[in-house]
């Protein structure tokens, strides 16, 4: 049985319910949904903030990092008083103040395959807000195995990318994308990042997540959206399943 909105919730989420095609039904689906988000850095702060405000039912955050003063420029769930504390602590506190009805929990460690598998089975969607290729590959591998939709975002310098991977026979996985490149790793430390760029990409990830959870609108499955913040361009590319992909072509 889907969760029925209380009158207070109907008022709280009225601006979404008013959207044609979203209606009460999609809001109820959202309230019944469980999202697992890896990372509460730049992307993760923006994504989690909108998911919680929009009314996702359950959100689990995973991050083992602590707040550094150099994070505050773009990681908007953490404040000056949180420096040195776990990111999940400040993230959960800020998010709970935003929406006390959202069931928010957090894990302060990097997950092993086994731990991740357990979490995946308890969630409907995974949001990848991580900052490294190893985690991205691990999430992809297990999401494919457990047939969980994966909303992937990444940002660096003045560029961002968003893509959703919804496991099926015809759709590509993250590895189909990453194998188009070499194996270079870059993080914000080395290359810099403009604060609102992670906010834009993280917000796009929240939007994708809401679409996947509710079935509203069209997702970015089999598509890669690139954002060039310097020259104000959005481009959407087609991404196909790679015939030699070690993850999704495994029969």
């Amino acid at each position: 049985m889907p969760h029925e909105l209380t009158p207070q919730q109907a008022i709280r989420y009225s601006r979404q319910i008013l959207l044609q095609g979203f209606d009460l039904e999609c809001q109820e689906k959202l309230l019944d949904s469980r999202a697992l988000q890896i990372g509460v850095g730049g992307l993760g702060c923006a994504s989690a903030q909108y998911l919680v405000a929009a009314g996702v039912g359950t959100l689990t955050l995973v991050d083992d990092d602590v707040v550094d003063s150099s994070n505050l420029q773009r990681q908007i769930l953490h404040s000056e008083a949180d420096i040195g504390e776990l990111k999940i602590t400040s993230a959960v506190n800020t998010l709970k103040a935003l929406n006390s009805q959202c069931d928010i929990s957090a894990i302060d460690q990097r997950l092993s395959d086994e731990q991740l598998a357990t979490q995946l089975q308890q969630h409907d969607v995974v949001i990848d807000c991580s900052d490294n290729l190893a985690t991205r590959n691990q999430l992809n591998r297990l999401c494919y195995q457990y047939k969980k939709p994966l909303v992937s975002g990444a940002a660096i310098r003045m560029e961002g990318q968003i893509c959703s991977f919804i496991p099926s026979q015809d759709t590509p996985c993250y590895q189909c994308l990453s194998q188009l490149f070499g194996e270079q790793q870059l993080t914000c430390v080395e290359a810099g990042i403009m604060a609102p760029v992670v906010g834009i990409v993280g917000s796009m990830q929240a939007l994708e997540t809401i679409k996947i959870l509710t079935g509203f609108g069209e997702t970015l499955s089999s598509k890669l959206m690139l954002f060039d913040a310097k020259y104000n361009q959005w481009q959407t590319f087609t991404l196909k399943k790679q015939p030699n992909c070690p993850i999704c072509q495994h029969t």
Binding site: G39, G41, G42, L43, G44, C129, S130, D131, N132, L133, R136, G153, A154, A155, I156, E159, G160, Q161, S178, F181, G182, Q184, Q185, L186, T187, C188, A191, I193, V198, L226, Q235, F237
Partner: peptide
């Protein structure tokens, strides 16, 4: 033609 760099940052 689009030549695209990889992005992994978060």
């Amino acid at each position: 033609i689009d030549i695209v760099s990889p992005i992994f940052g978060g």
